[in-house]
Amino acid sequence: MISLREFQERFIHSVQGRGNTILDYIAPGGKLTREDSISVYSSDYYARLQDALGENYEAVWAVVGDEEFYSLGQKYIRSHPSTLKDLTSYGNKFHDFLSKLEISKDYPFLVELAKFETEFWSVFHSKRESYIVNWQNYLEHFSGLSFNFSNNFKIFSWDYQVYGVFECRSTGFGDISLDIEKPQSVMLYKKGKNNIVQEISQKSFSIIKCLMDGECLEQIIENTEIEIDESDIQTTFSLLQQSESFFPREKE
């Protein structure tokens, strides 16, 4: 009998189609042949990882269709063996993988969509975090304040309606008239147990991005690259306050 280690190495090679060197050591179950008994494990392996990708990238799946998604999944699985203990986050390099393929030219929003799905599920599995701030106390020096943001708070800005596509993931695109080639910005955060995705203007995106980089309102207003007015600031802060995902940094 070979060592346990060698048995396992041969078993994996056989399951992943890299030489069926385990056959001499196994006794197939039922009426299966030895090859078939390995195929049971092999099919199970590819199906399990494909299912995980399907769950994590349902929107990409909806866009490219069953056949294409299956073929993409099988290629991804063959080039990205799982190093994880559970498959909840399997596919976190899927967007990189897609970016190198022709299909990302056919669907120029596909890579961003995959990235958004990764982030969406990571926020879903994160802990609740909400910051109730008594903003009255900060009004006096408001424009000089900088802020901290919850890890659950993310913003995105795309050249395409990526969130629009994401929303159609379970209903399909049949009845929906979606002008995909329209830029879109959103903020993603968690409120209670739910993920909230809120569409925001490009200007709000720019303001929030600066705030997340640690700038205060004064600096943002002085920054000549962003043209904003009073109402942009008001809308942005009112959206942020609803999210309960940020709070003023205490002065050192």
């Binding site: 048995f7 396992q8 994996i12 399951v15 050591y25 494990y41 799982s82 190093t83 203990k85």
Partner: peptide
């Protein structure tokens, strides 16, 4: 499975 290659299945052994 083995390091960096988890088959995510319950596998028999000698």
């Amino acid at each position: 499975g083995l390091e960096k290659n988890n088959l995510h299945n319950l596998l028999p052994f000698p």
